[in-house]
Amino acid sequence: MNLQKVVSGFFFILAMTINFGFFYGDIDNPELHSEYELFVAFVVSLISTVLKIGDKTQLGAVLLATSLVADIQLLSAVIVWTVTEYLSIVDVEAFAAIISLSGGALLANITSVVLYVGETLKSKR
């Protein structure tokens, strides 16, 4: 067993699960979506991006790309939330945008985990 594999696998999957936790619930009901969850999802996503840097294989490149997509989606969600809140224009439309952005990030995270698991299954060691 390889500690590095445990750590990176942990973060890749955590990024997906927390993202799902934030995404789950009615898209227009702010009470069902915790801002703390979004914060943690974003931080974990950043961490998993950094963990993916340095793998120069073809698969490593695709993994990094999915992670970057998740980062950008989550960052957009965070920015939309912050801006609308401070300008006091939080409405259903803005909130739906936040949730759907995180939904996109969730798809990217799922792709990343599927690829990661696939690679692990293929590995002979």
Partner: peptide
Amino acid sequence: ILQKLRAPLLVIIITYSIAIL
């Protein structure tokens, strides 16, 4: 450059998020 900056990037992300939280 990116590979050399992996560890410091992780440190910055983690310390920041702990402090912010």
